[in-house]
Design a protein around this nucleic acid. Sequence first.
DNA 1: TTTAATTTTGTGCTCGAACACACATTTCAT
DNA 2: ATGAAATGTGTGTTCGAGCACAAAATTAAA
Lengths: 349, 349
Amino acid sequence: MLKKKYTIADIAFMAGVSKGTVDRVIHKRGKVSKKAHEKITKILKEIDYQPNLVARNLKKNKIYRLLVLIPDPEKDAYWAPCVEGIETAAGEFQAFGVMIETFLFDPSATKSFISKSKEVLKNKPDGVVFVPLFYKEALTFVESCKKNNVTLATFNSYLSADNTRSFIGQDLHRSGRVAGKLMHMLLGNKKQAAVVHMDEAYKNAIHMQEKEKGFRDYFEGLKQGYDIVTHKVPHKDIKNVRKSVKDFLKDNPGISGIFVTTSKAYLLAEALPQTGPAVSVVGYDLIDKNIECLRSGSIDFLIHQNPKQQAYLGVSYLSEYFAFDKKIPDNKLLPIDIITSENYMHYLE
Amino acid sequence: MLKKKYTIADIAFMAGVSKGTVDRVIHKRGKVSKKAHEKITKILKEIDYQPNLVARNLKKNKIYRLLVLIPDPEKDAYWAPCVEGIETAAGEFQAFGVMIETFLFDPSATKSFISKSKEVLKNKPDGVVFVPLFYKEALTFVESCKKNNVTLATFNSYLSADNTRSFIGQDLHRSGRVAGKLMHMLLGNKKQAAVVHMDEAYKNAIHMQEKEKGFRDYFEGLKQGYDIVTHKVPHKDIKNVRKSVKDFLKDNPGISGIFVTTSKAYLLAEALPQTGPAVSVVGYDLIDKNIECLRSGSIDFLIHQNPKQQAYLGVSYLSEYFAFDKKIPDNKLLPIDIITSENYMHYLE
DNA sequence: TTTAATTTTGTGCTCGAACACACATTTCAT
DNA sequence: ATGAAATGTGTGTTCGAGCACAAAATTAAA
């Protein structure tokens, strides 16, 4: 009934050899006769031997350095949950000999990323989790890490196909389609909607494009003809959003829904005229100001990118790899969570 | 820079005592002089000593029996993901000396639960995770477990306030409100919707009531007057759903949205007349047939109760408690995931 | 002061896996 | 046949925490 947990000693006894020999077979270190090898392999298979990870890890007795390189939440509040996620994971794995430290860079300054990434490498980490915000520089960093035998995981931004790395994030095209679906429902019998890119301080142009593509793809798949207009509020004009939006709506009076491809939907929501036909808004990310708008009704749906979970998983995967020899999944696509005024609270915490 | 990981021996050296004394202080086993106690306590605090959980667990060297008691997926496919979640967790914790076994009961037969729960107890488990489908019998079972010093966790169904137990599930009232919000959006300018209870073989009347209450609460909170009608398709009539629904809609021709409080929304969707004004449908659970309806458009939204995650967390919490002395959270409310045809795939797997 | 009782402290083994090193056996060349 | 090299096998220690038991120090009793 109670399946016994076999130890190396048990197996050695069963095979009539010493535990050293069993150990050599398990670790394929050779220097074992064919006869002994066969016998032991057979037994291992029969009992489906699983080494005691606790004991194995105790013996290894190494402290792993795991460094995290992410944008500074002070510069952009979007990243604040990441820090929480990292700290949660750090708390969980510190007792297993994994030491986690966070380095922050300025998401608006490529230079800052370069210097911080160098600093990270100087610290001789065993593993690094980072956000490859700057494409070219990230690739350089990946190369350096490879050279230094540093295990890597990335999250949030996808960095080309490369199977030497784990990625945790979302399918942006798909998330655009989800926004499309939601907008479709919000429009009712109206037929015109807009995609608004509220540019942020740094380059997430690819993000925004992918999302727009998904959004448009969704509407193109419908039989009825919808009219999707694109508008861009550049970073420099971010203080004049109200004017920019007003002008845009005046030029396109038929628009009854707006999809904002960044976390700045609240800026748009605030800029919408109070009078006139209602305009539905779909945006991204559970930052305080967006949630306020959700509650007040000026934003209808938010799509949750779950930055906390992304960071948590990135750190956890590497920690479990170091601490327990677990395999790191190479591509973890998180669900695209749909948030309304009624369910946002469970995604915060 | 590299914070050292202090061991009991380190602390003993620093305090000028032996590791035995340090151990006694850590475990509050007394038999330590005031002077030694103070000195050691001070050092422990200073270095924020965290015992090496790996070593601690190795020494304990116990195999924990963790039994899971859930409804048979053969009787109701809703529970199939739970089995997956349990197996995932089992795979992860088996290497840490936690043995997990699953017992299935017939969700339509109270007797089955009673006999299986007795069987579970006979197996002398260290911990039990179960679904308290039958209120009275579940309480009895909880009592027996307490007597036998069995650590408990429940999921899916809430079993009164009792802090000796961990619960993993959803806020049903809240999930009704979420359904309300979604329905509100789907209705557009229409004003009449229905709550349909498709009774299943077993008692989840409380579930359905809570959900309806949340749904109605949401609409009552709106300024505009909405008309919410309730309809019940009893279990016996489940084969005549088409007729029951047809009659209901004929009696209430103004209805343009239906909220199904169980996982049987697909039955209703199939029974909806093809002609006439479109009726929006909001239901529960990602079972195959519902997803088909999502894709075909006959169901608009599903609310995901995440049975797999519930079961996985239940088993994980107890396993971590046994294997690593982690505290068991006593109430884990999972997010209320909103599912459409565009994002369901990420919630399956 | 000596002995006994009690409190306090230290030592040494255990858990299972990993691995260094010593020891044993075989193979091959001279 | 003898030694050297190569191959195979077993032993014993380590990791950190936990705990039983031995030992020492202190206190109480005679």
